[in-house]
Design a protein around this nucleic acid. Structure first.
Lengths: 336, 336
DNA sequence: CTGAAAGCGCTAACAC
DNA sequence: GTGTTAGCGCTTTCAG
């Protein structure tokens, strides 16, 4: 019905009897105007219900006031919370956050980012992307920040330190008296090797055993499928660490289905501290990686880059051990 | 360092020794070329790692090949899964999905959508937005689809029928022998009244009691806070339905913390069938509202609108009852 | 099959 | 204060 061409700046200029430059300046509040001109402008804009075309504007200014955020899997609550944090800060500062989901697909990353990049003033990207894409991004005339573990000095990366996160967890578990460790990792993730190192840094010196398993995707379903491998062997670990909470939840669920008592037969811990980990039985011990704060910090940092301001100080992300029932055996003195 | 301007079509043309028109046609695969030209084009593009600027393209074509999706809360797994479904279909068909989070904030909707709209060929919007924004969207020169319950005939809405969903659940619970019902709703959501009606359609004729409570936000935390109100009264329900799984999970968790046996003292059910509902204890009975399929369907429909094709057939969304432990009392004969 | 040229809607000098 | 004009990077007639 009312489906018609959007009015342009030229329509407004004609109607108000002024030049298009004047309309542009008015719309962008760039100066003051004589009363008659201002009145005509206001009514012309209202009558046509004109609004700026941001695409055309971006073409000439080179700015979009939008920031892109590409995550590996929006269905992972960790990423959803990163988005939450980033979104809030973006909105508070007059930016729009445009989120795209890469669906854990490395191959799709490049075209997705190519399409996203020109629509934004800056890009926030999950770190687990191929090196050539990282190069391409770094060469881009556009601020880029990565989510995750720093790998290069010349790019900004925000996230908790994976080595530290894993060590924190391992130290606690050692103190709890666990002796045989299992780690169910996701070797396709860039942080996997760091987390493994964090574990080994603690376990190796103590001479403790670590069995390593792998999932094909970092989900609860994959965790469930991996459980039997880790549990049904004579040398079964007495505590199993999932590379993230999702995996740990799947592992623990399947362990219980197989008849194991958690944590007495086998204990479980995860990493991330997603909301669900509090609600399952037993509640999951994990490490809070500050998902939402990560989003906030990366947003603040990329805004500083875009606006050529100095990087804000005091934005450190401190991972925190969250002790819950999944690692607190009844036969062991509890800490804390 | 190498921060330079993105290469333009002109750079490619120059390098390949052809005109920009030729480059454009090549990039858009609009015709075939002589072997030498094709070779030069390919290598020039590769060497410069050129990619089209979609903004400039949109300026002239009027199309963006992007579709916007505005959700109320990306941290709600239901929406995250809608995004998943929509994203997959979009990608398969050469569109980019741009997601924005409205953070459950009605006020923020309008400006967010105004910013999103011109960047897309069509908009998918969570239905719970103010009427004036709906009007504005409907008058927009752009296909729009809503997520949720149909409220107007002149706009496309995709989602499972909330009345049906609630009735399905109520019928089952009645068959299970429950007599005193509780519903913890979220009155700010447009679907709340429908869900309540679906419940009443079944309970009223049977002369069964329904106590209604409300949460201030549809989250597990709010569910936890609401639990005491619903449980600590002499006339406590024997089954409590959360308006969604998140709320139900919070309710059930707090009920257990208060010492109630679930489902024997009090049973719980939710709506949505989010992944977590399978992993908690006891597993949550719920109704699958086809979150991911909703995203797929709405995407297919809006693509049809954008491309002026007839609406695809056979895309009905059939909600399904998912029976789990949270409503299966040991003293009652189990069905199914 | 290839190229020249006219814009898409807007902003940013630069004149007046 | 206001207007003129030259593009932003690209597609699209229309010639050749």
């Amino acid at each position: 019905m009312s489906r018609q061409r959007r009015p342009t700046i030229r329509d407004v200029a004609e109607r108000a009897g002024v030049s298009i430059a004047t309309v542009s300046k008015y719309v962008n509040r760039q100066q003051s105007f004589s009363q008659p001109v201002e009145d005509k402008l206001r009514s012309a804009i209202k009558e046509l219900s004109y609004s700026q075309n941001p695409l055309a504007r971006s073409m000439v200014t080179g700015r979009t006031t939008a920031i892109g955020l590409a995550v590996m899997d929006i269905a992972n609550p960790h990423y959803a919370n990163v988005v939450k944090g980033a979104n809030r800060v973006a909105l508070e500062n007059g930016y729009n956050l445009l989120v795209v989901d890469m669906e854990e697909s490395i191959a799709a990353a490049r075209p997705l980012l190519e399409a996203l990049s020109p629509r934004t003033d800056g890009l926030i990207v999950s770190a687990r992307i191929p090196q050539d894409v990282v190069e391409w991004l770094a060469d881009l005339d556009k601020p880029v920040a990565f989510l995750g573990q720093p790998e290069r000095d010349d790019v900004l990366t925000v996230g908790t330190d994976s080595v530290q996160v894993a060590s924190l967890l391992a130290q606690y578990l050692v103190r709890q008296g666990f002796r045989k460790f299992g780690y169910v990792g996701y070797s396709r993730a860039s942080w996997n090797i760091e987390r493994l190192r964090g574990l080994r840094d603690v376990l190796d010196p103590a001479g403790l055993d670590l069995q390593v398993f792998d999932v094909e995707e970092p989900t609860s379903e994959a965790g469930e499928r991996a459980a039997a491998r880790a549990l049904l062997n004579p040398d079964r670990p007495d505590v199993i660490i999932g590379c993230n909470d999702l995996v740990a939840i799947g592992l623990m669920s399947e362990a219980r289905a197989l008849g194991f008592k958690v944590p007495d037969d086998v204990a479980f811990a995860g990493i991330d501290n997603i909301p669900t980990s509090r609600y399952i039985t037993p509640p999951l011990t994990t490490v809070d990686v500050c998902s939402q704060a990560t989003g906030e910090v990366v947003m603040k940092r990329i805004m500083a880059m875009i606006e050529d301001k100095p990087q804000p100080e005091g934005l450190a992300l401190e991972p925190a051990l969250i002790i819950r029932g999944s690692t607190q055996r009844s036969d062991v003195t509890r800490e804390n």
